[in-house]
Design a protein around this nucleic acid. Structure first.
Lengths: 172, 172
DNA sequence: TGTCAGGTAACAATCATTGTGTGTTAGCCT
DNA sequence: AGGCTAACACACAATGATTGTTACCTGACA
């Protein structure tokens, strides 16, 4: 993703307005590698600008996605994630326990749809997801208390409890 | 997934009750290759048993998932899908336009986490998703009307309209 | 057949996300 | 600088998917 200044220029060149709220979101996203959900972006943005609304955050994120500046990601953790890294082809590691997502930079270009297996679909490049446990969750493999603690920092709360989608549990 | 009769026996052997509602759901799922959502299972079940509730359907589906008889699948189409095919290792083809999901039986066992790329995650087998357009959506590439028609048959309605999650749009 | 653990269903809640309406403003023109 | 106007931002409330709660009901076994 580009720098906030480049994004501002891009917005202007497209006839879109460069509002303080948007600039704030640009700054928040820039350099973020944690694949934040909209809610998390909202929290960060509010730290700089208390009056910004969640709706504005959603809108701006979807705009950036349309412009191709960020990628939208749904890995079954209950909320959509936004990925500012669109310059490198990559896949994802997903923690089943806390929902954390990390980039996986690997070349799976050998992966192709076998002849006859495509059922007539026209498809693009495949997405690969490795599900498992992140280092933090391995470390506190015992307790629930501590897991909650590190979840509340930056990720989807309480995966696999109430009102939360289960992750995509393909036969694993 | 097993036959309805086998499932009934399994339930009994586990001390679970074999109710008419559950049997109805077993029948609906058996042989279904369309990766139905809970809503779709509910519709089908209601055709046989008008009084069954959506809640019961969700409960039974999650039970079957716990027992390992079906797999839960979230491919970003807005609702969870249930996959009765747990006997064959497979991946998925997802239509970006209508949300249809098809099994992709292919051996991607060569796919491994490169050394050093795992960031300390402990992971299992990867999931591979190919996104694109299904034959039906290619056929009516023009109209919206007809697309709606074939969506309403058996899949998530109106992907990419209101209240619907966007699919996982990894850089494609 | 009676008992009872466990299943059902009506109801309402919850979360993530988005539509609506109204006041505000960025960007441009003069 | 001042004004215009489409585009924005925000408060509010709705929506779809999913699940908790509670009170009633029923299958399975004695």
């Amino acid at each position: 993703m580009r720098t906030p200044a480049e994004l501002a220029a891009l917005y202007r060149s497209q006839g879109r307005k460069v509002t303080p709220q948007r600039q704030c979101i640009f700054r928040v996203l820039h350099g973020d590698e944690t694949h934040p959900s909209a809610e998390v972006v909202y929290e960060s943005a509010r730290r700089e600008m208390e009056t910004i609304s969640l709706k504005t955050v959603y809108q701006t994120l979807h705009e950036l996605a349309e412009l191709g500046e960020i990628a939208v990601l749904d890995v079954g953790t209950g909320s959509i994630r936004f990925d500012p890294n669109v310059d490198t082809v990559h896949h994802h590691l997903v923690c089943r326990s806390c929902g954390r997502v990390r980039d996986l930079v690997a070349d799976f270009s050998g992966l192709e749809l076998p002849d006859g297996a495509g059922h007539g679909f026209e498809v693009g490049a495949p997405e690969v997801v490795f599900r498992g446990r992140c280092p933090a969750c391995i470390a506190d493999a015992d307790g629930d208390q501590r897991r909650k603690q590190h979840q509340q920092v930056n990720f989807d709360p309480q995966i696999s409890t109430n009102h939360q989608r289960r992750g995509a549990l393909c036969p694993s």
